[in-house]
Every structure is written in C-alpha cells, then in structure tokens.
Amino acid sequence: MNRDQVLNALFADGWKAEYLEADHFYGRATIGNQEVTVIGTSEKAEVGADMALTMARVVIQTIKERAGEPIVFLLDTQGQRLRRRDELMGLNGYMAHLAKAVELARQRGHVILSVVYGEAVSGGYISTGMMADACYALADAEIKVMNLPAMSRITKIPLDQLEALAKQSPVFSPGVENYLRMGHLDAVWQGDYAEQLAAAIKNLQTKTSAEIGKDSRIQRGVERGGRRTAGEVIKRVLGHA
C-alpha cells in the first residue's frame, strides 16, 4: 500500500495533514472519540539529519501542547541517509535526539504505536518504529536490517552459508513473519486496519506505565520459536555483570 491508501485505511474518520512532502509527513487524525498525532515516512524515505530533526520537533510539540495524546508512526523507510553531508553533521546524534524525544513522550504519558506499511530498514526504523510501545506491520510490508549479500560483504561470511543459516533462523531473514517470530512485532495486520489500530491504542491506554515499560520482545521471541537462546544468554551475561 502507498501512503495515501494506508492513511485512508487507518483513519476512516479522516486525517488532517499539517505537513506533506513526498518522503515524510505529519498531521493529526481522529480515531473513535480521540485525536492522535501522526508522523510518517513514505516512498522508502532516507532518514537524514533534517528529517530526524523535523520528526523530533513534532514529538516535542505534541508533548508540550497536547498532553497524553497518542502518537502513531507510519513507516516506509530504506534506513538512514548514507550521505557525506549527513554523516559530517553527525547523523547518529540527530537520530539519538529523535529517539530521546520518543522516550520523553512515553515518560510523559503518551502511548506510542508504530505501523510498518512499506519498508523498514536499519537506522530509519530503530529511532522511530522500534522505540514504540507496540509495533505492527501490514502483511505486505518488508522489515530487514541488512540483505544477505550486504551482510556477506560486511561479515566476510560466504553468501551460501548465510542463506543456509537464514533457512534455519529468522534472525538472518528479512520479512514481517520472521520479525513476528522473533517477538519484535506485536502482530501483523490484515483486514480492517482502522479497527485494529483503534483496538491497539485502546489496549495500550489500559496498561500501567510499568506494564508499558516492560520489554517483552525476548519472551515473545522464545514463545514463538524465533529466539530460542536470547533469554538464556541475557541471564548469563547479567549473572557475570
């Protein structure tokens, strides 16, 4: 689905754009009887310093002006912008600033939800979607950290060996089903997206801050068979800390 299709599908009561460019946008929408802040990327956007700063500003503005209003990230990004200008500006710092803004919103009582409707890759996803209280994806979306040929070049592990590992473990494999198995995604949506979004926000709003703050991704990954040893490794590391 493209941006306009997903906006229409998620916000049956309509949404009002405050900023709308080809690769990123923000505004507000009505879900049931409440308003939500919508921040998104589109057209496989590259998240650079300017875009990260814009999204952080919208999050901070929401904290200041609309206490407790839910924040929804809609994502279609190929990752961080790999450009000399952005790297020289310190892109990692801008993306960290965005992540900190999202965490501040959580601490101030805003529930934060992300929906991957296109592509979600690497740094462009980590500072937004992976920072949310709950992460969802549409069935035809694509989530990945790095494709296998690139992983082979970086790690020096032969591609055929990585392809064999990918068949055995979702950790090496792209795709929403693999991220669901690893416990990262709360669910993959099909059908009535507006109804599922409303239910997801309502579910978050019934939880305490302690429940929201608890990271259950490892446990879900174990239960779903996607991360069989992660929990045990964490226990061993903490035991020697």
Rank of each mutant, 00 (worst) to 15 (best):
residue 213 G to D: 13
residue 118 G to S: 04
residue 71 I to Y: 10
residue 81 R to Q: 04
residue 170 P to D: 07
residue 88 L to K: 14
residue 46 E to G: 03
residue 27 G to Y: 02
residue 167 K to D: 03
residue 97 H to Y: 14
residue 44 K to V: 00
residue 48 G to P: 10
residue 176 V to W: 05
residue 113 L to Y: 01
residue 224 R to W: 01
residue 18 E to T: 07
residue 236 R to L: 15
residue 30 T to D: 05
residue 122 S to Q: 08
residue 41 T to Q: 08
residue 81 R to S: 11
residue 47 V to Y: 06
residue 188 V to L: 12
residue 96 A to F: 10
residue 73 F to N: 02
residue 156 K to Q: 13
residue 95 M to C: 10
residue 57 R to H: 09
residue 104 L to K: 13
residue 74 L to E: 11
residue 233 V to T: 09
residue 172 F to Q: 03
residue 47 V to N: 11
residue 111 V to F: 03
residue 78 Q to D: 06
residue 161 Q to W: 04
residue 193 Y to D: 11
residue 41 T to N: 06
residue 188 V to Q: 10
residue 219 Q to F: 05
residue 49 A to K: 02
residue 229 T to A: 13
residue 10 L to I: 10
residue 58 V to R: 12
residue 175 G to A: 06
residue 234 I to F: 10
residue 115 V to F: 09
residue 50 D to M: 07
residue 142 E to M: 12
residue 98 L to A: 00
residue 4 D to W: 04
residue 77 T to H: 02
residue 135 C to P: 02
residue 45 A to E: 11
residue 12 A to Q: 15
residue 239 G to A: 12
residue 75 L to Q: 09
residue 89 M to K: 10
residue 3 R to S: 11
residue 103 E to N: 09
residue 35 E to G: 06
residue 162 L to A: 08
residue 195 E to G: 03
residue 48 G to A: 06
residue 75 L to H: 03
residue 88 L to R: 09
residue 150 A to V: 12
residue 115 V to P: 13
residue 44 K to Q: 11
residue 113 L to P: 02
residue 236 R to Q: 14
residue 154 I to C: 05
residue 78 Q to H: 05
residue 72 V to H: 03
residue 191 G to L: 01
residue 99 A to M: 11
residue 63 I to W: 00
residue 179 Y to A: 04
residue 35 E to L: 12
residue 208 T to P: 11
residue 167 K to W: 00
residue 118 G to A: 01
residue 188 V to S: 10
residue 13 D to N: 15
residue 214 K to V: 01
residue 24 H to C: 07
residue 133 D to Y: 00
residue 90 G to Q: 10
residue 56 A to P: 01
residue 136 Y to K: 13
residue 205 Q to D: 09
residue 80 Q to C: 11
residue 90 G to T: 04
residue 230 A to G: 00
